[in-house]
């Protein structure tokens, strides 16, 4: 039985790790203390925890100001608000000035569930990828989110960490290395490469098991750092496998798959399929129902793999 844990708890625990490592770490939240799991940090470091209330634009720039006096601020809210509502602050103040602000983007993806489309962040990667100086990490599970959060304090400039609401399978372990900017090979294979970010890594691994039963060897790569993306591992996968499938719990337009495609078309063009949200908003439902309805399951990755193999 696969272990399930919340990535947002990984973020919360990662903040505590970061707070213990550096006294400069400060955490801000916009009236979402418990649901973004910054409560752990607030309990251990109340003097370094700032409640900003329901004022995300202010929160982003208060974080900017804190960074200008030497703090390492994390501002935290749902990803839909952290990106769309604060976009001008992210662009003009934080990215243009290349400030050392970290952003905790909670409730990433359709698996947010019953809260519905307004709270299901599906656009963050597309938006943030277009901002110079911004770095984007989409960890796959609890441990990776925790490690990415701690690692982000040593990465200069703005860093966005995307995580989800629900329990999701644990794929990595406490000791699995996390290296910012580097993709990681999770399963070798030469027929098709499936590149995944976030919780889709688990679905990709499940898809690979199924594909193997049909005699297809799928290479599975975890790309937690979507920007800057690991070009080498992508080019190698394209040239050795000759077919690529990307999987993301996010809009396909401008998202992770697009980032991979940009690398491939410039270096080693091969057929590609994109598993992700196909240009629509989400809706209410149970997380699992939504993942099925919006075609984000292993079965959908298998279909994409078969399709791309047919184009090889």
């Amino acid at each position: 039985m696969v272990e399930l844990k919340k990535t947002r708890v990984g973020f919360g625990h990662g903040l505590v790790d970061a707070g213990r490592k550096s006294e400069k770490v400060v955490v801000l939240v916009g009236d979402l203390r418990d649901s973004t799991n910054v409560n752990f940090f607030a309990e251990e470091f109340p003097q370094r925890f700032i409640e900003v209330g329901i004022a995300e634009q202010n929160m982003a720039n208060v974080a900017a100001g804190l960074s200008l006096v030497g703090k390492i601020p994390f501002f935290t809210t749902y990803g839909a608000f952290a990106t769309c509502r604060c976009l001008d602050m992210l662009r003009v103040t934080i990215c243009y000035s290349n400030l050392n602000v970290k952003i905790g983007g909670a409730h990433g993806g359709i698996s947010v569930g019953p809260d519905g489309a307004t709270h299901q962040a599906l656009e963050e990667i597309s938006i943030l990828r277009s901002l110079p100086n911004m770095k984007v990490i989409v960890p796959c599970d609890y441990y990776e989110t925790r490690k990415a959060t701690l690692a982000s304090i040593d990465i200069k400039g703005p860093v966005y960490i995307r995580f989800g609401r629900e329990n999701v399978p644990v794929v990595t372990g406490e000791k699995t290395p996390f290296e910012f900017g580097k993709g990681a090979l999770y399963r070798d294979g030469g027929d098709v490469a499936i590149l995944a970010c976030g919780v889709m890594l688990y679905e990709a691994l499940a898809a690979a098991d199924e594909l193997q039963r049909d005699g297809i060897d799928a290479r599975i790569i975890n790309i937690h750092t979507v920007k800057p993306i690991d070009e080498d591992i992508i080019i190698k996968a394209a040239s050795e496998c000759g077919a690529i499938v990307t999987a993301e719990e996010h809009q396909v337009y401008g998202g992770f798959g697009s980032a991979v495609a940009e690398v491939i078309v410039k270096n080693s063009p091969v057929p590609m399929e994109f598993v992700g949200i196909q240009d629509s908003f989400g809706r209410s439902g149970q997380p699992e129902e939504l993942m099925q309805t919006y075609h984000l399951k292993a079965v959908d990755i298998i279909k994409a793999a078969m399709k791309v193999l047919g184009r090889k």
Binding site: G65, G70, P73, M89, S97
Partner: peptide, 25 residues
Amino acid sequence: IEVSAGSLGQGLSIACGAAYGIKMD
């Protein structure tokens, strides 16, 4: 120049963050 500017309505929040951080110290 302490911070880049050009889009209006942003400076006071930045100043608030700096003032808060200075008080923390």
